[in-house]
């Protein structure tokens, strides 16, 4: 009784067209020779050339990568810790507040997070003299805070699936709590930690609202640069930049997907083989 679900398939085709037509259109127009971004004026790669020779863009990219690298790493450490805490320490004073604190930033509108951090940094600067000015440090601190909670969510979910007994086995065999964590827990959940880091990195690299509030003079990240240009309208060089970013990320995600798919298939094949040997 396998009938083709025609209705579902047509909505899916529409849905995916809706997803990809704007992106494809943007990619096509990045090769537009015309200065008018939406009117086709022949094929050209001049906007790409302009992009690579634009120091502002290069500087902004480097700053963004630096911030993303630092904030992803620190937020992964903090997020992993709190994810483990949420899953393993079910009773401690202030746990309710703690679990509220790791979920609230997820649903807090970015404008509010941004403004509260900005006011906080300004007042702190007035009272204790730090941070004297805003820039790399304040942006990074802000990014760490809101990416850490995403890492927490991923690690927490993974921890809930992990078998508690293997940790107890390690303790039974004489490992102290911190040894159990480094010998057993972290290796077991390492895929979740890795995807947490990747998510934190992407979020940081992509963020515009919170960065806009926590930045200071001279610290322009790539999204901020795009933001300031895009507010003025559609320009062909942004099309080119967007195309490069989309293609880079797309290739990265596809490669990661293929690698994970292969690993999974290999694992299944090995399991099957082991099973057959047992027979």
């Amino acid at each position: 009784m396998k009938r083709r679900p025609t209705f579902l398939i047509s909505v899916m085709i529409f849905g995916f067209a809706f997803f990809y037509i704007p992106i494809l259109s943007m990619i096509v127009y990045s090769f537009n020779a015309s200065r008018l971004a939406t009117v086709w004026g022949g094929f050209s790669t001049k906007w790409y050339v302009a992009l690579f020779t634009n120091d502002k863009v290069i500087d902004a990219l480097i700053l963004s990568l630096k911030i993303a690298l630092v904030s992803a790493t620190i937020s992964t450490i903090l997020g992993t810790m709190s994810g483990i805490v949420l899953a393993r320490y079910t009773k401690f004073r202030g746990r309710t507040l703690f679990s509220g604190l790791v979920t609230a930033p997820l649903i807090m509108p970015e404008v509010i997070t941004g403004i509260s951090l900005l006011i906080f940094f300004i007042l702190l600067g007035n009272w204790i003299g730090w941070p004297a000015s805003r820039g790399f440090t304040t942006i990074t601190l802000a990014h760490i805070t809101f990416s850490a909670v995403f890492v927490t969510t991923i690690v927490h979910a993974r921890m809930l699936q992990a078998d508690r007994a293997i940790e107890e086995a390690a303790m039974d065999l004489g490992s102290r709590p911190w040894q159990v964590m480094f010998d057993i827990t972290l290796p077991v959940i390492s895929p979740a930690i890795l995807s947490g880091w990747l998510l934190a990195f992407t979020i940081s690299l992509d963020d515009v609202v919170i960065t806009a509030f926590t930045t200071g003079p001279g610290s322009t990240t790539l999204p901020l640069l795009i933001w300031s240009k895009v507010k003025l309208g559609v320009t062909p060089d942004i099309n080119a930049l967007a195309t490069l970013m989309v293609v880079t990320v797309g290739l990265g995600v596809v490669a990661a997907g293929i690698i994970m798919n292969r690993a999974e298939k290999r694992r299944q094949a090995e399991e099957r083989l082991a099973f057959q040997r047992n027979d």
Partner: peptide
């Protein structure tokens, strides 16, 4: 993967892509 892919690409640029499409002179 195709559903998730746009999610990984820049939010700002996804908004921007529609600015290109909605403009008065766009195809």
């Amino acid at each position: 993967m195709l559903v998730i892919l746009p999610f990984w690409t820049s939010f700002l640029l996804r908004v921007y892509a529609w600015m290109g499409l909605m403009g008065k002179t766009s195809w």
